[in-house]
Computed example of a mutant assay.
Amino acid sequence: MLYIDCPYCGKRAHEEFTYIGDATKKRPDGAEKNDPAWVDYVYTRDNPRGPHLELWHHGLGCREVVKVLRNILTHEILGAGRPADDIPLPETETKP
């Protein structure tokens, strides 16, 4: 079982949360009428490997949105915080 450390409620089982989406995607400006920018935002998704920032909704708890750093390959939760928090990605190993 996965546990997400909610910044509002503390450590909770992941069943209390609902995945919202990619936390790294930036929404286009509301005044922008550029269709390609909106199509990219809505439909284009990367398929990352390793650590990735995601947004989750704590629907069975505080009902707040939580930013979660999760390893996509292992499903390990590496960190969590408020949406505005800066959660640093772990350093990647480089081979000589």
Rank of each mutant, 00 (worst) to 15 (best):
M1F: 06
M1E: 11
L2Q: 13
Y3D: 09
I4G: 02
D5K: 06
D5N: 12
C6I: 00
C6N: 01
C6L: 01
C9G: 01
G10K: 01
K11P: 02
R12S: 07
A13K: 07
A13L: 12
E15H: 13
E15N: 05
E16K: 11
F17R: 00
Y19L: 07
Y19D: 00
Y19N: 01
I20N: 00
G21N: 02
G21Q: 02
D22K: 15
A23C: 08
A23I: 07
A23K: 13
A23F: 04
R27M: 10
P28C: 10
P28R: 15
D29M: 01
D29R: 00
G30R: 13
E32F: 01
E32H: 04
E32R: 06
N34W: 08
D35A: 07
W38I: 04
W38A: 05
V39K: 04
D40L: 05
Y41T: 05
Y41G: 03
Y43C: 15
Y43H: 06
T44A: 15
R45T: 12
R45H: 12
N47A: 10
N47D: 08
P48E: 15
P48Y: 08
P48Q: 11
R49S: 06
R49V: 05
G50Y: 03
P51H: 10
P51S: 13
P51F: 13
L53D: 08
L53H: 14
E54W: 10
E54V: 06
W56Q: 01
H57N: 13
H57F: 06
G61K: 02
G61D: 03
C62I: 09
C62W: 14
C62P: 08
E64H: 06
V66Q: 02
V68G: 05
V68W: 05
L69S: 04
R70I: 06
N71V: 07
N71Q: 09
N71T: 14
T74H: 04
T74P: 05
H75Y: 09
H75S: 06
E76G: 08
I77W: 00
I77P: 05
L78R: 02
L78T: 03
L78Y: 00
G79K: 00
G79V: 02
G79Y: 02
A80F: 01
A80V: 03
A80Y: 00
A80N: 02
A80G: 06
P83T: 14
P83A: 05
P83S: 07
A84Q: 08
A84F: 07
D85Y: 00
D86V: 09
I87H: 13
I87P: 13
I87S: 14
P88Q: 10
L89H: 14
P90E: 01
E91S: 09
E91C: 11
T94E: 04
P96F: 11
P96G: 06
P96E: 14
